[in-house]
């Protein structure tokens, strides 16, 4: 029963081997879907290309449904899955800073690595910027520390926060995603085409 490494079914020594192989597949499909192009990524914010939204929600739903299934048939212990801690304030403010970075830089960390791998010089510069940003954050950490550690709600799950069951939440998420796929399809037809 999974997860395999936390349960000790596979030795932790294999961790990095899996990491490398999983990374290769991740990079292959990110690049192959067009995530190495900042102009394609930015399309979601101007309505001329919704690949980010379609890809993002399809991936999240596929994994979430798969986990319900794996949990149901007893292949995985869902309580052992890592759940990010909800430090609400730093999540929101960090997200706002990242959102600005996204619209200015046209990449996020994973996609900039993909762009950099195929020779996009703007992606190299973006990646360089990340190194500087992380360095600045580390040096200025005393300024951020209070915010960084505030308002921790712990490892809570969204369906618990909303007071509904896991399966019902995922079902609702699928309906919302299908609605968005439909609406964005209409928007994309109406928005002036951008050549890139």
């Amino acid at each position: 029963m999974g997860p395999l490494i936390p349960q000790g079914i596979i030795s932790g020594e294999w961790n990095n081997v899996f990491a490398l192989l999983i990374g290769v597949v991740f990079g292959f499909f990110l690049e192959g879907s067009g995530f190495s192009s900042s102009r394609k990524l930015a399309g979601v914010f101007y309505g001329y290309d919704f690949i980010v939204l379609k890809f993002f929600f399809t991936a999240a739903i596929t994994a979430a449904v798969g986990m319900i299934y794996f949990g149901y048939v007893g292949w995985i212990d869902l309580d052992m899955i890592y759940v990010n801690q909800s430090y609400v304030s730093s999540l929101i403010i960090g997200g706002v800073i990242m959102g600005l970075g996204f619209i200015m830089g046209g990449f996020c960390p994973g996609t900039s690595v993909c762009g950099a791998a195929i020779g996009k010089i703007d992606a190299w510069v973006f990646t360089g910027g990340m190194f500087i940003g992380i360095f600045i954050f580390s040096e200025a950490f005393p300024l951020f520390e209070g915010l960084y550690n505030s308002d921790n709600l712990g490892s809570i799950k969204i369906y618990e926060s909303l007071g509904i069951s896991r399966a019902f939440f995922v079902f609702a998420l699928i309906l919302v995603a299908l609605g968005m796929f439909y609406v964005t399809g209409i928007i994309q037809k109406k928005v002036k085409k951008v050549e890139y």
Binding site: A64, N84, M98, I136
Partner: peptide
């Protein structure tokens, strides 16, 4: 943009892949 993403990803404990995408998949 990279600079802001660097700062924001540390404050937000992860970026679009780790915090948002994987975080959504695990329903956190």
């Amino acid at each position: 943009g990279g600079l802001l993403f660097g700062i924001g990803s540390q404050l937000g404990r992860g970026c679009t892949s780790g915090a948002a995408l994987s975080g959504m998949a695990s329903l956190s």
